[in-house]
């Protein structure tokens, strides 16, 4: 029950300072976004090039002391959405690949290629995003976002959110434990009571969690005032763009342009 939270914060963040990990957070954010943009700019069906980019990603991960296996393991998060692309199999016109036995619907070759391209690109993109968060501490990421001109309010709100994420999650998990202790469930895994009742109980839990959160935010604010908070969050993090940042971004940009040109014109 406790592990029902859909995300884990305690991922093994490498403390490595090699490879991409040694770059400025701003460069890492830009590189990740550029990588994903490059993938999105490729035409469908270029599986060789997708594979090439995936290998580049895995090599950069390995050079930064992050195992590609971990990237693959965490990337299953993107799987459910792949179902949204399934219709492509049937709606893209073209030569028939196979006909579904009972329904008599054709799956076209073009449709299958488009489907596989979208799912593959989406899967590789997710792994790039995972690599970014593994190689960047959250505080550094926030600093990088501010450096890239994300509005300061958003960044400081996000900083607070990250700080209290685990606190409120354990609050929520205590609520869940309390619910489990008090409401009978059938062995088939069905919750007790009617659907309406279960929804109401969930709603009450959410409501009381909200009240607790707001009261906690009052206490947090007072505690921060006591420590000299003036509305500005100061961090010790300081980075500057060094030559390796410029070089890596230059090389990445050139490679991206070449790959996109090759994919479109060769």
């Amino acid at each position: 029950m406790i592990e029902a939270t859909n995300t884990d914060l305690n991922s093994p963040k490498t403390e490595s300072q090699s490879g991409l990990a040694s770059l400025d957070p701003r460069s890492k954010i830009l590189l990740a976004c550029g990588f994903i943009l490059t993938l999105s700019l490729l035409p469908p069906g270029e599986f060789l090039i997708y594979g090439l980019l995936l290998i580049v990603l895995y090599i950069s991960a390995s050079l930064s002391d992050c195992s590609p296996v971990y990237l693959v393991r965490r990337s299953v998060i993107a799987l459910p959405f792949a179902f949204a692309a399934v219709t492509l199999l049937f709606t893209i016109p073209g030569e028939s690949l196979l006909t579904l036995p009972i329904l008599g619907i054709d799956i076209s070759v073009e449709g299958a290629i488009r489907f596989a391209s979208i799912v593959t690109r989406s899967w590789i993109s997710v792994q790039a995003a995972i690599l970014l968060i593994i190689l960047t501490k959250v505080a550094d990421l926030m600093w990088g976002l501010q450096g890239l001109h994300t509005p300061a309010i958003l960044v400081s709100v996000a900083g607070f959110t990250y700080r209290y994420l685990d606190v409120l999650r354990s609050e929520a998990s205590r609520l869940r434990t309390a619910r489990q202790a008090r409401s009978a469930t059938l062995s088939a895994g069905r919750g007790g009571g009617t659907l309406l009742w279960r929804a109401r109980v969930t709603g009450w839990m959410v409501g009381s969690l909200m009240i607790r959160s707001m009261e906690r935010s009052e206490r947090i604010y007072n505690a921060m005032l006591a420590r000299g908070y003036t509305g500005e969050v100061k961090t010790l993090t300081r980075f500057e763009l060094r030559s390796r940042d410029y070089w890596s971004m230059l090389v990445a940009a050139l490679t991206a342009v070449i790959i996109i040109l090759v994919a479109h014109f060769l």
Binding site: T161, Y164, L165, R169, M210, S213, S217
Partner: peptide, 22 residues
Amino acid sequence: IPLLGVMAAFVFAAQSINFPVL
């Protein structure tokens, strides 16, 4: 700012409270 930050953390936490359907 602390209020909004805690509210956003609340949304995360509230999303972890599951509602058993069927």
